[in-house]
């Protein structure tokens, strides 16, 4: 029994790792294509049909490029930092139910690695740990621009973790559980039972904070775009730089899974249609990340902090208060 469980878990982990590292690569293709179409360009065209093999070409380039460790850097920490980004992104995936449980060759499969009771808390915690990748990378780099962007990134992550945690508290109070599966079952009664109708404020706040947690465009301060430099990744080359990217895109996919599971009914009653519905919602939220990048510029660091501490956090606290009063 125990051995069977172990084998099953290992298979699940390998499948999730493979699928989402591949998706991270394909995600870059989608991003380029969608950004290109929104800006009236064609995007990648030359490698393969519709430029589809561009991902493979990028992969070959990243894997074969020389892995440069500059002088003066703290070598071990410098080498480990990209691994932390990628690893924490995939660790967070352990508590996400990707699909409803289904039967494969007469064996019931639960597409979740570890069905722990505190799924949301675990995911938020691990995403908080994800800040160490950019932070250590920037601090070990012996480059002032890297250090600056690391400091800015850390400030953004820590501040917006507060918003994420507070905004999610009100739905947790309503459902009475920290498990994502319980959240899904609470909303399984069709569109009218979705949490987004009773908690619209929490939904919007969580969505905004998701952009900061993944470091996407309106809050893309971890790369110093205005200094025309790539932030904490400046000193990195080859696959180590690629690992930062895999981590970022995997994070985007996982947060796109978490938002529908929390607020938009997840996979519903667990039917085939529900599973397709979840994937459609994930696709929409991933597309929205790219859409925002095409439509909006970055905001200034002081505006970002103002937005977090003077607007979003008070609204989140008020939302909790009102929810508590209504529930009483």
């Amino acid at each position: 029994m125990e051995t069977a469980y172990l084998i099953e878990t290992v298979i699940k982990i390998v499948v999730i790792l493979l699928i989402f590292s591949a998706l991270a690569g394909i995600g870059t293709y989608f991003e380029r294509k969608i950004l290109a179409f929104m800006q009236r360009r064609l995007g990648p065209m030359n490698v393969g049909p519709f430029g589809l093999l561009q991902v493979a070409a990028d992969g070959i380039k990243l894997f074969t490029k020389e892995d440069i460790i500059p002088t003066n850097v703290v070598a071990n920490v410098f080498k480990i930092a990209p691994v932390i980004t990628a690893a924490t992104a995939f660790m967070a995936a352990a508590a996400i139910p990707f699909l409803p449980s289904f039967t494969l060759f007469g064996y019931e499969v639960h597409p979740i690695v570890a069905d722990i009771n505190i799924g949301i808390l675990y995911i938020l915690g691990i995403m908080g740990v994800g800040l160490y990748g950019p932070l250590l990378g920037g601090m070990a780099s012996a480059n002032k621009f890297s250090l600056l962007s690391a400091a800015r990134g850390a400030a953004v992550f820590i501040s917006y973790e507060v918003v994420t945690g507070l905004s999610i508290l009100a739905p947790i109070m309503m459902v009475g559980s920290l498990s994502l599966i319980d959240f899904n079952n609470y909303q399984s009664g069709g569109i009218t039972s979705w949490l987004v109708w009773s908690q619209p404020v929490a939904f919007v706040l969580f969505w905004i904070a998701a952009f900061a947690e993944t470091g996407r465009t309106p809050f893309h301060l971890i790369a110093n775009d205005h200094e025309i430099i790539d932030g904490f990744g400046t000193e990195y080359s080859g696959m180590r730089w690629g690992l930062f990217f895999i981590g970022e895109y995997a994070n985007m996919f996982f947060i796109s899974f978490v938002i529908p599971l929390l607020f938009l009914g997840g996979y519903g009653d667990g039917s085939f249609l529900g599973a397709i519905g979840l994937l459609a919602k994930v696709a929409f939220f991933f597309f929205f990340f790219l859409w925002t990048r095409a439509a909006w510029p970055d905001i200034r660091p002081d505006q970002l902090m103002w937005l977090c501490w003077k607007v979003l956090m008070p609204i989140a606290v008020l939302n909790i208060l009102i929810t508590a009063i209504v529930m009483m």
């Binding site: 505190i118 808390l121 915690g125 908080g128 160490y132 850390a154």
Partner: peptide, 21 residues
């Protein structure tokens, strides 16, 4: 489970991040 997740959130996420700052 709860204490484990809180350990990660509080010590690695908050306290150590302040050290890093």
């Amino acid at each position: 489970d709860f204490l484990g997740a809180v350990q990660i959130v509080v010590y690695s996420g908050a306290v150590m991040a302040l050290y890093a700052f």
